[in-house]
Write a protein that binds this DNA or RNA. Structure first.
Length: 313
DNA sequence: CTTATGACCTGATAGC
DNA sequence: TGCTATCAGGTCATAA
């Protein structure tokens, strides 16, 4: 479900609850959504993705040492690159959480209850028990993910996190420049939207914000990257930074499932100009918005504001 | 190399 | 009410 703004909102919420807190114990209720640094390829692939090398079974034998999931450790910080979160322990060990489509990282303080789902706790795959300095309970954190496209990954230290786990990811979308986009996208027949969705080009943009940023930049999503010039790339980069920033301020976009670490919805969907508005009038010119598949994803654009074939300097 | 396709999962919703 | 089909915020392996 989540793109950069949603993940950043979760990061802030989790950080406010767990930084400086000790993890008393960890329970892995589904082993196959956890990948360790020792697992072959599975979990540590090119674009920072999730699935095992066979594209399906992610069952990994053996128990994950609790310490690898920060049991007995203290949380020193919560970082983010693109759509991925990393809990960094005082020991240096890191736990990466990727939310996939339906994942949530939820935290409940002492005496609070985790937000409940209609299906109960059936999809609560990893549970961290938190402990105050005096040893008293400080609540719990849970990785919940019904569809299981997400996952939890261990790294022995920050060097591995950055150098291996996150090595293939492009620059974070919140601070990306037009120059970076131009260089990493290359010049080919590939649709500009497809390039923006490629996490090796740019980390953090997904289907919603690709459409929103391209609309605001006046670029048709199917524009081949070979037709893009430096000024247009700069405009696209600027609109990406802008849209993501505004969405973070609104707590992200909640379409159905998404909530922050405390179970609250975000309201940025109210500001969507194109996503989810196919067939309605363009907010700028009133033209009926078109929809179709680009890069195999549902895409919405304004045929008038985002004319295909327009010159792009 | 690039690009498209089907696959991975479950839940919510729309339509009959 | 109950069934079925469709769709979803992500990313992968594989084939062409």
């Amino acid at each position: 479900m989540p793109e950069l703004p949603e993940v950043e909102t979760v990061r802030r919420g989790v950080a406010s609850m767990v930084v400086g807190v000790r993890i008393a114990s960890v329970t892995v209720r589904r082993r196959d959504i956890v990948a360790t640094e020792l697992d072959p390829l599975g979990g540590f692939s090119r674009a920072g993705g999730i699935r095992g090398a066979d594209g399906r079974g992610r069952a990994r034998p053996g128990r994950v040492p609790g310490a690898w999931l920060l049991a007995g450790d203290e949380v020193a910080g919560v970082e983010r690159l693109g759509k991925q979160l990393a809990l960094v322990g005082a020991s240096g060990r890191c736990v990466v959480v990727h939310l996939g489509m339906s994942g949530q990282l939820l935290v409940a303080g002492r005496g609070e209850r985790l937000p409940t789902a209609t299906w109960g706790s059936a999809h609560d795959h990893v549970v961290w028990r938190l402990e105050g300095r005096d040893g008293s309970s400080a609540g719990r954190m849970v990785f919940r993910d019904p569809r299981r496209f997400g996952g939890v990954f261990t790294s022995p230290d920050r060097e591995h996190l950055v150098g291996v786990r996150w090595a293939a990811l492009g620059p974070d979308a919140l601070t990306v420049t037009g120059e970076q986009l131009a260089e990493r996208s290359g010049r080919s027949a590939r649709a500009t939207k497809a390039a923006l969705l490629d996490q090796r080009v740019l980390a953090g943009v997904g289907n919603i914000y690709a459409d929103e940023a391209l609309f605001r930049a006046g670029v048709h999503p199917m524009t081949p990257t070979s037709a893009m010039g430096p000024e247009t790339w700069e405009a696209v980069a600027a609109r990406i930074r802008e849209v993501l920033g505004a969405s973070i301020e609104a707590g992200g976009s909640t379409l159905r499932d998404y909530t922050d670490a405390q179970g609250r919805a975000g309201v940025y969907a109210l500001s969507h100009a194109v996503y989810g508005r196919a067939g309605l009038g363009c907010v700028v010119c009133g033209t009926v918005l078109e929809t179709g598949a680009v890069a195999q994803r549902t895409t919405v654009w304004c045929p008038s504001c985002q004319e295909l074939g327009r010159a792009h300097g």
